[in-house]
Design a protein around this nucleic acid. Sequence first.
DNA 1: AACGAAAAATGTATGTCATACAGAGTTTTA
DNA 2: TAAAACTCTGTATGACATACATTTTTCGTT
Lengths: 244, 244
Amino acid sequence: MPRDTGGLARTVELLWGVSTSRGTRGPRPGLSVEAITRAALAIADAEGIGAVSMQRVAKDLDYTTMSLYNYVPSKDQLIELMIDAATPPPPVPDDGDDWRDGVERWVRATWDLYHAHRWVLKVPTVNVPIGPNQMAWFEALLHALSRGGLEGAEVMAIAQHILASTRGQAALSIDLTTEQDGTTAEFSEALRKLATPDRFPTLHGLLTAAEPGGFDAGAELYAGLRLGVRLLLDGVEGHVRPGA
Amino acid sequence: MPRDTGGLARTVELLWGVSTSRGTRGPRPGLSVEAITRAALAIADAEGIGAVSMQRVAKDLDYTTMSLYNYVPSKDQLIELMIDAATPPPPVPDDGDDWRDGVERWVRATWDLYHAHRWVLKVPTVNVPIGPNQMAWFEALLHALSRGGLEGAEVMAIAQHILASTRGQAALSIDLTTEQDGTTAEFSEALRKLATPDRFPTLHGLLTAAEPGGFDAGAELYAGLRLGVRLLLDGVEGHVRPGA
DNA sequence: AACGAAAAATGTATGTCATACAGAGTTTTA
DNA sequence: TAAAACTCTGTATGACATACATTTTTCGTT
């Protein structure tokens, strides 16, 4: 496989496994895109995305750094591959039950997925380039949602909305439960001190009303996400059946 | 100001402007946290966050790189400062009108803010540490939302939900309208090709149903965000007034 | 008035990183 | 059998954050 600085075409090739039709000359490749991706993924899962460097991946594979570039055109590309590799096929939809349950299950599964690979949401640009597995998850959401009776463009909009809020809440949950040592407690205490009633009356009220002891950020945020999704789906139902 | 590697206390000091009570000895400082932040912000706004390096900021200020560290304990800290500096005070709430309008105005203003500083949402951890201006915006949302009649913890949850979806949609919009040259069109075309009807029936249907020509990603995403927020607020109303 | 402490500013140095480039070795095709 | 195509290695470059030691400036104290 010739080296390539990797435009969009190459991205698509790699992510979507378009056969790379490698010429059969030259030494047989000792590595593969999959092996590299797997090694990098293992590092990220174990030590965070910050531990993933080309040198580190190569070392784990017992190759030189530069040999990776025979397979992967750049580190950014590798990260795209890692994200897609971290994403299993989405749960199969169960069209038997309520469509709302389908959406809520999707949200739960996505939440779990992001928590299983806590580095994914720390990657700066998870947005535009999308691999097959990512797309499959989005398709699953679209499918579940489309059973609710929304019109085409609305399905897309609401799906993006749900995806965005799931990501956002999950990112927050991951951040709050990742802080090393006691920084979370320390921070939440600082927050309480800074949210003075004069400048931040509403926030102050909410913070002091909440139980003062340690709170389970993860569970609380998930409950919030769930509530948000439910109310949103309520809105969807009202929108679709204006009478009822 | 003595150098400091910057724990949480220092972060809070810098972000919240707790007076640093500098001893009056030594040369008079030629720089200031504000000047450094301003210079860095200008670079980020003009050339993106990637162009912000300590060397670059120092050069723009005609100082050496290391002198910045007399004021700012680390680059990460500087970025926190930049984010807060990029955030103006939130629009004053207008309690005269419908509370829903207040929320929608907040969403619009936040959308505009992120688009005015397109680098902000590219910073990996915009999540947990919060400066005074960020907090003021969140307070504004809480305030607008609390007029809807939700119970305490619910206000917090829905506010986070709205913040998350606004951020997510804005991030997507920014990504799609930032791609250099014609990558957006190229990408959307590739997407259409990859979303085959066998594996991605729903997505395929939606993409082919949409008008095939160039579409205004920004406007479309904002419309989607708006719809999502509206339906969510519908849900909130139903939740608060179960009868009606 | 002089000295020393404190702080600002500089210069140099280190270690990490992505990646360019050249060359050496290997396999297949012409 | 020669050359083309490819893999792999080694070395090199340029960014970058930041540690550390040194110089310079200013002020409080004697």
